[in-house]
Structure formats: C-alpha cells, structure tokens
Amino acid sequence: MGSASGVQAVKKGSGAIRVRDGLLGSVMNIILALFSLMCIFPLVWMLYSSVKTKREFNTSVISLPSKPTIENYIKIFANKDANLIGAMGNSMRTTLLSVFLIVAFSFIVGYILSRVSFRLNRPLYVMFLMGMLIPVHSLLVPTYIIFNRTNMANQWYTLLFPYVAFNLPVAIFLVEGYVKGIPPELEEAASIDGCSFNRTLFSIILPVCRPILITIAIISAFSCWNEFSFALVLISNNKAITTVPLALKNFTGQFSSDYPKMMAAMLITMAPIVLLYFIFSKQIIKGMVAGAVKG
C-alpha cells in the first residue's frame, strides 16, 4: 500500500512539474520573444517609415505607410553633393583594409602578449588596454594637428590609422583571452617536431584562432563602417575620399529636418553592414560564443 501511494505521489509530482515547466517555459519564451522584438523593432520601423512622405510621418510616426514611396531614396542617390556611390567605394576600401590590419595586428600582438614572456610584455598589454580609455571626441583637435603636421590628413589612407588603432585594444583583449584557452601542449608538440616560431604562429595557431578572428573582423567592420567623428575631422568632405556616414550628413541642413529622409539615409548607411550581419549571423555568433573572452 505504502509503496503504491508513493508511486502515485511521484506520478502526481511529475505531472505538476510538467505543468510548472510548461508555464515557466511559456513565460521564458514570451520574455525572450519580447526582447528580440525590442531589438529588431527600430529596424523594421525605420524601414517602413523611410517609404513614407514627411507629411504622413508627421501625422503619425507609428502607422504603416498608406502609399509607400521610394522618393526619399531616389533623392538621396540623385544628390550630387553627397556622391554616395563614390563614398560607398571609399567606405568599403577603408573598412576592408582596416579590418584586415586589425585582424592581423591583433592576432600577432594578442598571441605574443599571451604566450611569449619578455620584459615589456605586461607594460605593452597595459598600454593597449589603456587605449580603451582614450576619450576620442575631446581629442579630435590634437589628433588633427598631429596628422596635419605630418601631412597625413586628407589622404586615402588617413582613416586607417584611427580605425585600426582604436579597434586594436578590444581585439587584442579578445585574442589574448582566446589564446589563453588553447592548451600550450599544442605549440610544445609543434616545437618538438621542429616547427619554427613563425610556422607555429601561422600554420598551427592561426587556424585554431579562426573563430575569434572572424568575430573581431565583424565587430570592427561595424565600427569602421559607422565611424563619423574621425572622418569629419581628418578628411575634408572631399569627394574623392569621403565616407558614407560623412556623405549622408548632407541630408541634415541647419534649418531643415525631414525624418523619413534621414531614416532612409541611415538605412543606406547601415545596409551593407546589416546585410552582412544577417547573412552571416549564425557564424558571427558562433565565433563570438566559441571565441570570446574566457576571463
């Protein structure tokens, strides 16, 4: 008898657990769904708002467009001052080169700082970390003066310097953390096999670091593509070297503000990066999860 009732109790209990889990599960799913919606909503909102007219937008900022129009986009691409196509090319070149250099430098520096002991190791590590604390916006003038004195302002390569330098600290931080998690036996085995330092670095460690390097490439691509302040100060709005965020600032006049058009301009700025993100999101997140800092 006793044992039978015990079994029943267990059954009841598991039923209750199932109910509880179901409830808990739906609550958790709802919370996460709300979170995801909140994250994605501004993009959706900007997308449909950018095809409204200014008048319609001002009447109601939330309602869906009654008669979608791509006039805002046409106006932006047709604007001669902005030279958007040229700016796209410049932004792409600057971003690609910067990302390449960031990945290469952070890999090398991160690895050396993590694995090779030499006198300046910790000082260098601290120096790179301090780079994260530099208040960029209040240092724009000194930066411009340094670049101007050395004749390095207003060149096609000018922006590579700040973009690489200011993205390096976090990248090095990430690589350093990642490499720490790789068992040293890997390199020790290689060295026993007679592998040189260079070969170990590029043919053994590099493939292992792939996930974190992809992650770094992606986050720095976002920040280089979106960067505005250095572009404003270091390169004139010279049509030959202007970048997209700078070119699109033409759409905010001193005394005019056309929100749907500004949204269209922002979406154009974001477009390549957002596409890149959604196409490769699985891999990016995987890289982040596999690679990111292990403390």
């Binding site: 003038v141 100060v233 709005n237 600032k249 006049g253």
Partner: peptide
C-alpha cells in the same frame, strides 16, 4: 573651386579644428 560643404553643425566642428591647426 574646391568646395567643402558640410551641414552647419559639422561645419562648425571642422572649421574650429582647422583654425586650431592653423590650416
């Protein structure tokens, strides 16, 4: 004429920078 045209708020930032650098 090499025109460097910026929206007013950015113009103020850039012209101040250029003045500071004597440029």
């Amino acid at each position: 004429l090499n025109q460097d045209i910026l929206a007013n708020v950015d113009y103020k930032t850039q012209i101040a920078t250029k003045a500071a650098a004597n440029d």
